[in-house]
Simulated scan of single mutants.
Amino acid sequence: MKHQHWIRSAALAGVIVLLTTGCSILGSGKKSDIDAPPGASTDVDAKTTSAAVTVDMSGDITSQMTVYVKDAKGFVTPLSLALPKTVSVAKTTLEYMVDGGPETSQLPSGFQALLPKGTKVISLNVKSDKSAIVDFSKEFLNYDVKDERKLLEAITWNLTNFQTIDKVQLRVDGKDLKEMPKGKTPLDAPLARTMGINLEKSEDTEFGQATPVTLYFLNQNDQNYKYYVPVTRLIKRTDDVAKAVVEQLIKGPDQKKGLGAVLNATTELKSIKPGEGLITVDFSNKLLGTDQKASADALQSVILSLTENTTFKQVQIKVDGAVKITSTDNQNYSKPVLRPTHINPAIKL
């Protein structure tokens, strides 16, 4: 009973946050670019950007696209896989999120698809109001109750990556789902990114007085594959979301959950300023290591987290006002940086 109560409370948290903050912070128009292959035609994916395309050993054309799966610690995590070139890219990504499906061979150790075995995506239709109606076969209902919210997060965050989709409505065999049958998560309103992902709440924060920020921390599997995990943290209400994002990255992950910090606790934020199309973050020189380089993981996390929570598409990073920054992987960060097109590539194209 307690478990069901938590699922319902967590599902409602995004709605509560919107009522208390007065705006949709996580659904503010920013999307991570999901790539449609060249020549993709008339469906939802036609407005997305061109993909990195390769030819696999069988001669089939594939594109690198993002799906949301579960890692060994239970976190819902984006992975970029090589999926076949199809007309309906969004529908294909869902099909590759079915347990036991064709994605299995591509998943790194410890990762598992969340859609139940045998689930079929009967249809995916996108309306003019950017709502996607997904019709699954009855096998969709054969999920484990402990994964109910994770399943909803994976579907919602996967589809809302597409620039033409802002909200998601679920059907099974043509009938609208009003609630999930096992944990009773309500589905009377369309699902949106505002529901958060891997939701957690700061101890000093109340649901009715909270602002959500989605932060990208690090995790690693048993084969040393390192990847970013998005965590939506409810913090005390604030109007300066961008500053709060960086401060929470410095604060780091909940130690009990086993994620790795991206910024050192001694990191100092000097200023954060919005501009036209970009946001500029100025750190003290404590961002740099003894080699005078900034951690590549830290810089990528800052970029992912800021572009996730704001409408800015580019991030300019400075250290003591200077833009001549080199990362530990020898990338030059002297110019504004766009959000990465592919998060957590599981393959190399």
Rank of each mutant, 00 (worst) to 15 (best):
S80L: 09
Y96L: 09
T86E: 09
E103L: 00
A90L: 11
T62M: 14
S63H: 11
S80K: 03
V87T: 13
V98R: 14
S88K: 10
Y68P: 02
L107G: 00
T62Q: 15
L107A: 01
D99I: 01
A72S: 07
S88G: 08
F75S: 04
A82D: 12
V98F: 11
V87W: 07
T77D: 02
V67D: 13
D56M: 09
G101D: 15
D56V: 05
A52L: 15
Q106S: 03
K91S: 10
E103Q: 10
T54H: 08
S109H: 01
V69C: 05
K73E: 06
T77P: 05
A51Q: 08
T86C: 03
L107I: 00
L94F: 03
L79Q: 02
E95G: 07
T62Y: 09
A82L: 14
P102N: 12
G101C: 14
P78A: 09
G59P: 05
L107M: 01
F75Y: 09
D71H: 05
T92C: 10
K70R: 10
S105A: 13
V55G: 04
T104R: 13
T93L: 11
K73Q: 08
T62D: 09
F75C: 06
E103R: 01
P108C: 04
M97G: 03
S58L: 12
A82S: 11
M97P: 11
L94I: 01
S105P: 00
I61G: 03
Q106N: 01
K91C: 05
G100Y: 09
G101R: 15
G59W: 10
D60T: 03
E103K: 01
S80A: 15
T104K: 15
V76F: 04
I61Q: 15
S105D: 11
F111P: 00
S80H: 06
